[in-house]
Design a protein around this nucleic acid. Structure first.
Lengths: 329, 329
DNA sequence: ATGAAAGCGCTAACAA
DNA sequence: TTGTTAGCGCTTTCAT
């Protein structure tokens, strides 16, 4: 079923059929209706590949994440896919396994099949991103690079809320368990938590870098205990959960002995016992916004307009935080 | 950078450049090396779209899952992507939101951009799958349709192991909390658990259908309690976790009062407290096998060979199962 | 408002 | 072993 079959059956030229689909206003109403009817009857579907070859546009978007298995990403992916679909685009998801080299390779590979790429929580350095951003339209999520569009989540405020919550509970010595090297989110948290701690007059130690996984949390346990802090802010829910597990193995009880706060508000944190106090991230909104920004960039000819959007976060208080135990005596 | 630029720079005809890339053995070694060197120098990358248009093959595979956020899928997706990539294919993932209609629509949409589709745990009826399977190569995972290739996980044996484990612990009355309508896995579990229970001489009640989510488990709690069974086999880990939560809310303790077994061996089950006893599914292997089957079908001309592969499962015993409490007496 | 014709970048017979 | 040629299915000037 090609455009030619339809043209023949509808007794018009192929270009008229083409227009009926891609520039309907250029064809007389009755002609268009006849063409569309014939096409439907024949079960004709435009060949996207041929279309892409002539137009140079695939109507596909790439979405690169560091780890699909990290529960932070699925809601973002789902939202992006659903949103893009109604706007006539397909989203292709790829996983870098937390590896900056794989990330670059995937961008190069995807570049040939998509019109633009959404890079979520990249591990690549700013310079590399900037260089690649010159080759095709990019939208970043959780990363700010001059000249590129980005959707940011206000994790700085989230970290400040976490510090305030802990300080309000009476904790005087906190520790921040940072995330992976190259993480913008981790850097933001560190800066904001530092300032909030100073404002509150509490001490804040900083640990890291750590892998953003449960195992990273388990591995960080001894270092956390060494600080003798009574309140912990972890890079994300997974790290927080691993930490709670590591503490539990050493008979340190959360929240009785130590309070722990995660970031992301994933299912994992809800399932965990104790239920995790965490900074909720607007992941679905971020996915939709990134798609909007990218499509807008693609469909607006002129300048590659760069836009930064900051999305609000909030603190979800559950069972992993409590007032510090009164020192015996 | 097109094939023509390379041809000109290397002083050969475009077809020679084309061959140097897609049929290297057809071009003399030194010519090929010169062409490749020139291409590398110029930064030439073959245009996949143009290639797809002439060959009729995209080297893209579609992977359709019902819910990316269900932790059962990510390991399968990751394995499939990684495996396909080394074999020269890209995998595009789409999410149906547990909706059979969306599933069909996605298959139709993807059909135009991929060479074949892997359908994981489909919700569509066998007839519909069979019909769509006529239009492009399919590989099913967790579903058996005559005439189509499939990767199956031996959940029947898994369910039997679960029944045996519970019966061995001394439970005499079990209940199976089934999954969604249209789930092959659920049907297999029901059949196998029924047989195993009969063999063991224990009673087995069956509940369902239920959504395959934590909420489905919570909602099933009253019905489970009504059966007065002391051992539960849930459709998957999420349902098991929801059920444990629902029981906890009613002050029914797991495993003291009721034992619960999940299926899938997801992170969620490991994180849950009590840690979940569960049937481990070979998800990564299933992803790789499905990719292999599909690529084999694509690259073997002749008949659409249909192959069924059955992958083994095992029981992981953790903390959500125990001997039933002795009736006070 | 429609038709004619060129061409997107590449592959694949067929020739030489 | 390499060159020639004819498209793949569609869009898009340019005419009419």
């Amino acid at each position: 079923m090609t455009i030619r079959d339809v043209a023949q059956a509808a007794e018009v030229h192929v270009s008229t059929v083409s227009r009926a689909f891609s520039a309907p206003h250029l064809v007389k109403r009755e002609t268009r209706e006849r063409v569309l009817a014939v096409a439907a009857e024949l079960g004709y579907q435009p060949n996207e590949t041929a279309r892409a070859l002539t137009t140079g546009r695939t109507r596909n978007l790439g979405l690169i994440v560091s780890d699909i298995a990290n529960p932070f990403f699925p809601p973002l992916i789902k939202a992006a896919q659903a949103h893009a679909r109604v706007r006539g685009y397909q989203v292709f998801v790829a996983d870098t396994d937390e590896d900056a080299a794989v990330e670059e390779e995937l961008i190069q590979t995807l570049a040939r099949q998509v019109d633009g790429v959404i890079l979520v929580s990249p591990r690549l350095a700013n310079d590399d991103i900037g260089r690649l951003g010159g080759e095709l339209p990019f939208v970043l999520v959780n990363r700010s690079v001059p000249g590129l569009s980005a959707v940011l989540m206000d994790v700085a405020n989230g970290a400040a809320l976490a510090v305030d919550h802990l300080a309000g509970l009476g904790h005087e010595h906190l520790v921040l368990v940072g995330g992976p090297r190259g993480s913008w989110t981790s850097a933001q948290m560190r800066r904001a938590a530092g300032k909030a701690a100073a404002d509150q007059g509490v001490r804040l130690d900083v640990l890291g870098p750590n892998p953003p996984t449960e195992h990273g949390g388990i591995a960080a346990t001894p270092a956390v205990l060494e600080t003798r802090a009574t309140g912990v802010i972890a890079y994300n829910d997974l790290v927080a959960i691993g930490l709670i597990e590591g503490l539990d193995d050493r008979n340190v009880h959360v929240p009785r002995d130590i309070s722990v706060i995660g970031v992301d508000d994933t299912v994992a944190g809800r399932l965990n016992r104790p239920r995790l106090t965490t900074v909720a991230m607007p992941t679905a909104a971020a996915g939709r916004t990134a798609v909007d920004l990218l499509i807008q960039a693609l469909e607006t000819p002129g300048e590659p307009a760069t836009a930064q959007t900051m999305l609000a976060t909030s603190l979800v208080i559950r069972d992993s935080t409590a007032a510090p135990e009164q020192p015996a005596g």
